[in-house]
Computed example of a mutant assay.
Amino acid sequence: MVIHIQRHRLSEMLRAVRELEAKGYECMCRIRKIRNMKKLWQYRYGDEDFKQFGGVDEHTIYFVKMRKVD
């Protein structure tokens, strides 16, 4: 059985991996750091004075695959 684990903080990821290793799971791959860039908002101000504001937010996710050892 394969389990996918995703966490936002590395400390939470390490804690979850250690708990599953104690239950008999092992890592299939290294812990990967995935960065997602998402557009948060756009704002248009007024009709005559056209101003457009934009913003970008970056989220980091840690990902690992684990499997049960027999």
Rank of each mutant, 00 (worst) to 15 (best):
D47E: 11
D49C: 06
A22W: 00
E26M: 02
K23T: 01
F53G: 07
R32C: 05
V64F: 05
H8M: 15
H59L: 01
M13L: 05
E48H: 11
N36H: 14
Y25F: 14
K38T: 03
H8V: 15
V69G: 08
S11C: 04
D70E: 13
Q42I: 08
R9K: 08
A16T: 14
M1R: 09
Y43I: 06
R67L: 04
E21C: 00
M13R: 06
M66P: 02
A16K: 15
R7S: 08
R35H: 03
L10G: 02
L20W: 09
L40Y: 06
V64P: 02
C27F: 00
R9G: 02
F53T: 06
R30A: 10
M1E: 09
V64K: 03
E26R: 08
C27H: 03
D49Q: 08
Y43A: 06
M1C: 06
R7N: 08
F53D: 10
M1Y: 07
A16E: 15
Q42D: 08
F63H: 04
L40F: 03
H59K: 02
T60H: 05
V2Y: 12
G54L: 01
K68H: 08
M28R: 13
V64I: 08
K23G: 02
M28Y: 12
M13Q: 06
Y45C: 07
V2I: 14
M1F: 06
F50N: 11
Y45R: 10
I61P: 00
Y62K: 01
V17P: 03
I3C: 12
G54M: 01
K23Q: 07
D57C: 02
E12Q: 15
G46Y: 11
